[in-house]
Design a protein around this nucleic acid. Structure first.
Lengths: 360, 360
DNA sequence: AGGTACGGTGGGAGCGCTCCCACGAGTGAT
DNA sequence: ATCACTCGTGGGAGCGCTCCCACCGTACCT
């Protein structure tokens, strides 16, 4: 009859789950110290004598102790997880190297932490609702958001919930949230200067979606570049796109339909440049002889194009890394007692650089 | 002086964390029922009267209650999270559409659950060690593994730890773990039959890495197809690859170095077909006039090639979906009392289908 | 009428941690 | 020798749930 002992469910659980992995208490017993001390050692507190620390570490190793994440989260009121939110259609996440580079940078920054990364692609309203519910449950300690549109309500939600956030790319010049961004204006200006220096006189541009601040900056930089080169601005040379390859095609077609076609195009992203290049090939126009092309992002796509694409490099992976580090320090700040000063640089602008190849 | 009240840390935590989100207990008070009852309602237990359920649901809605995941995990000894493990170099995950399709399928299956997905790309030994540690901590309820090599030690580790797992693609014909796989043999056979039917007589193949069982199956199917078509097998027509674009290039070059070049190539993956196609273009060989090409996977790449690539379709997204569902039921099985029968189909082979385009 | 069964319910115990208070031993100043 | 600290340490309380047992009332039986 005595199938189960006193403990009831406790005993059962142990029995089911492979004899139970060790707990803090067991490590403490083994090391001949108290629970609190083991906790201090595991969490790297300095207030432990060297002798004790060694004893505890030995016990941890012998028992193969790994802290129970759920218990820790419950007791400490944190989750040790952050979310990377990509408010874009699912397939774009995979098509656009930008995102994977960001992800790689974030991963690298987190590799030394035991912070867990949740990848959240928010492609439609249903996903949005799920995310909101998720965030309301405080299931992450912080959020990274990439590719945010100017009117996106997500940042407000995060602020209301008091969840630390860092975004890649500002929503406007006066972005209140911590951000990491590339110097888009300067990059675009460099691109136009480069084309002008090579004797191009009729320089067009294909823009990204202008509800993204970065795309707007690139357009501003394009205009600045023209002015600095003493070239006349002509709004018919500005073809709107939305960062997709298809938009690159359409925009280039519209430029080629102009009475006087351009002799160079500054394209707002490498992916759009691929679309533009296809159209040029179909029309029998040579790159760079007939039309020079400069892209933006300097993703792997640029190197693989025919001819290899001149492109404005932004340090995407590094941006991902810095976003993660900034978020980590923001989280630390909210956890600590009040009055801890915000780290000096929660808003970072990184330089861009023109990488010249044979398309220009 | 009374900055903090009696509770000490409790009060502080509440104060810091935005007045505290509601707990089960508070919902219970509001609905005028006990804690257990609210728990039952939230977890969809049938043992609750309709009246009570309505009252609790109202209270949940009014308070905006969201269960605390950590507390639930701790009490119930589960995590409500699964991992998708990709034992491949990081960049391949993004380059190869196969993985993103799997991911999409998994995500769709999980969308109706509140199961959380962790994406784990295991590119090197350091990542492997981290994963092992992670799994030892039982931080996930189950694991999905894609692209597993025959000699990978990961499955043994999972078995030892008693973590439910489902893999995509078997490691051998006698795979003991639950799996979801495509009928690679049949797909390859169809491809060869198709080429033979179009009058090709000297049909070569470029294989994937043969320590992956699926690649081996495709090779077997290739041989079967030749035999069925009454064509002579010639091992010099078998060029080894490893699923990368570069390998596709190299392999095609070696085939073109043959004294008598093939008039058709069955390529073991679309990505490798891209590489092969580049070489053909460089050599001025026409597709399909000089050499017909058939790929495998029918990823989006195939449609975008020039000419569009005939390819063997495997239902990758569906495979991801089924993997997730299988894992979910495996997890349920281990949670339930002993003796629950395994669902009828923990091992699923899905049909493949030739999609004919103009490359053949 | 009394007995039995069972659906529905309340709440104690416990999951494995962190946080913090209290306490003992050592150190230096008085 | 006494006092005032500090440092290192042990362990109680509590995080918000789930699980389970005990209990209540009602319906149905004999």
């Amino acid at each position: 009859m005595a199938i189960r002992e006193t403990g009831g469910r406790n005993t059962t659980a142990r029995g089911t789950r492979g004899a139970g992995r060790p707990t803090l208490e067991e490590v403490a017993a083994r090391a001949g110290v108290g629970r609190g001390t083991v906790s201090r050692v595991v969490n790297g507190s300095p207030r432990v004598s060297e002798r004790t620390r060694a004893a505890v570490e030995a016990a941890v190793a012998e028992l193969g102790y790994v802290p129970n994440r759920a218990a820790r989260a419950l007791a400490a009121n944190r989750t040790d997880a952050i979310a990377l939110v990509v408010p874009e259609a699912e397939h774009r996440f995979f098509v656009e190297p930008y995102f994977s580079d960001i992800l790689r940078g974030v991963n690298h920054a987190l590799a030394d932490t035991d912070m867990q990364l949740l990848l959240t692609i928010v492609g439609n309203d249903r996903d949005r609702a799920r995310l909101a519910h998720y965030l309301a449950g405080h299931r992450v300690d912080g959020v990274l958001v990439v590719s945010l549109r100017a009117d996106d309500p997500l940042p407000d939600l995060l602020t209301d919930l008091g969840i630390p956030a860092v975004i890649s790319g500002r929503r406007s010049a006066a972005e209140p949230l911590p951000w990491v961004d590339a110097d888009n204006v300067s990059g675009a200006r460099q691109a136009v200067a480069h084309l002008a220096a090579r004797g191009r006189r009729r320089i067009a541009t294909i823009t990204g979606r202008l509800d993204i601040y970065g795309a707007r900056c690139r357009l501003d930089g394009y205009r600045d570049g023209l002015a600095e080169a003493g070239l006349e601005a002509d709004d018919s040379l500005i073809a709107p796109g939305d960062f997709t390859e298809e938009a690159g095609r359409t925009a280039m077609e519209s430029l080629l339909a102009l009475p006087e076609i351009p002799d160079a195009v500054f394209v707002g992203s490498d992916v759009m440049a691929v679309g533009a290049r296809q159209v040029l090939r179909e029309r029998g126009l040579r790159v760079p002889e007939d039309i020079a092309l400069v892209g933006f992002d300097d993703t792997s796509i640029a190197r693989h194009m025919d001819p290899p694409l001149t492109s404005v490099r932004q340090p995407i992976e590094e941006m991902g890394r810095l976003m993660a580090l900034t978020l980590l320090s923001e989280i630390a700040r909210t956890t600590l007692p009040v009055g801890v000063p915000r780290p000096p640089q929660p808003q970072l602008m990184l330089p861009t650089e023109l990488i010249a190849r044979t398309s220009s």
